[in-house]
Simulated scan of single mutants.
Amino acid sequence: MALFRESADVSVRPAVPGDETPMTAVQVAAWRATHETALGDGVVDALDVDAMRDRWASAITAPPAQGFAVLVALAGPVVVGFAAVGPGQILALEVDPDHQRGGHGSRLLAAAVDRLRTDGADRVVTWVLDDDTARERFLDAAGLGPDGMERVLATGVRDVVERRWSAEI
């Protein structure tokens, strides 16, 4: 006889040592699925995965200053997404492509905004890479919108544009 649960076994919690490895895998998979064309051929393949993992480990164990935090989304015991916040901003929010559209991004966004509020922020900002229409739709549905600011990032293959999205919280 199969057991059915009233709710899925999903959650968001602060990242802990050991989460950096699945976080890095999520980030690479998400970037490959979403940004490979925008970043340029070979950019995702050229990422230094060990260095990325080490930076996430440092962010988890020794945040650079007050107001920085890393959160992870879980499906059961498995890390399927993460968000990183700094004072007033969401620095990163990624969900494994195989686990998208399951509410993990919304839970991460809500937890990130709660963390920002706790730290005294009254506004949230984040950056969206040009042509990431899925992220734009997600943020728009959550009440964020483009505020007219943009920046250009060099990938080594081409320059890419990011636009800032923001909202009062």
Rank of each mutant, 00 (worst) to 15 (best):
V125F: 03
A110R: 15
H99G: 12
V43M: 07
R101M: 12
A84M: 14
V78I: 10
R135P: 02
V49K: 04
L153S: 08
H35N: 03
D132K: 01
A38W: 12
A84N: 09
P87K: 12
L144Y: 01
G143V: 05
P64W: 01
I60Y: 07
V26T: 09
V124L: 04
D159F: 00
H104F: 02
Q27T: 09
V152M: 05
E162A: 05
A51S: 10
I90V: 15
D54R: 13
A8H: 14
A8C: 09
P17V: 01
D19Q: 12
Q27K: 07
P14K: 08
D45I: 07
D132A: 01
L47V: 13
R13D: 04
V44C: 02
D96W: 03
V43T: 08
R158T: 15
A62H: 09
T21V: 14
G81Q: 05
Q89F: 10
R107A: 13
A111L: 00
D130M: 04
E6D: 06
D130N: 13
M149Q: 14
A38E: 15
P97D: 05
T118V: 14
W31F: 13
T155D: 06
G18V: 01
E136L: 07
A84I: 04
V79E: 08
W165G: 06
W127R: 01
D41A: 14
L108V: 06
S11L: 04
A25F: 04
A33H: 13
L109E: 01
A38P: 03
A73P: 07
D122N: 02
V161T: 15
A8E: 15
A92C: 12
S58F: 00
E168V: 12
G156A: 03
L108C: 08
D140H: 15
R5H: 15
A30D: 06
W56L: 06
G42A: 04
F68L: 07
A92N: 12
A167Q: 11
L47Q: 11
T37C: 05
A46P: 06
F4W: 09
G102F: 08
V16K: 13
M23H: 04
L153W: 11
G120H: 12
T133N: 12
W127T: 00
G103N: 06
G81L: 06
M1N: 01
D130K: 04
D41H: 15
A33W: 06
G145E: 10
P77A: 13
P14Q: 14
L3P: 05
T24D: 02
G102M: 11
D147S: 09
H104D: 00
L144A: 00
D19G: 11
A8S: 14
A33F: 03
G102W: 07
Q66V: 05
F138L: 07
A15N: 13
P146F: 05
L129N: 04
A84K: 14
P97H: 10
D131A: 15
V128A: 04
V125L: 10
G143L: 07
A65G: 10
V152C: 02
D147C: 13
A75Q: 14
L47P: 03
E6L: 03
V49P: 10
A2D: 14
E136C: 15
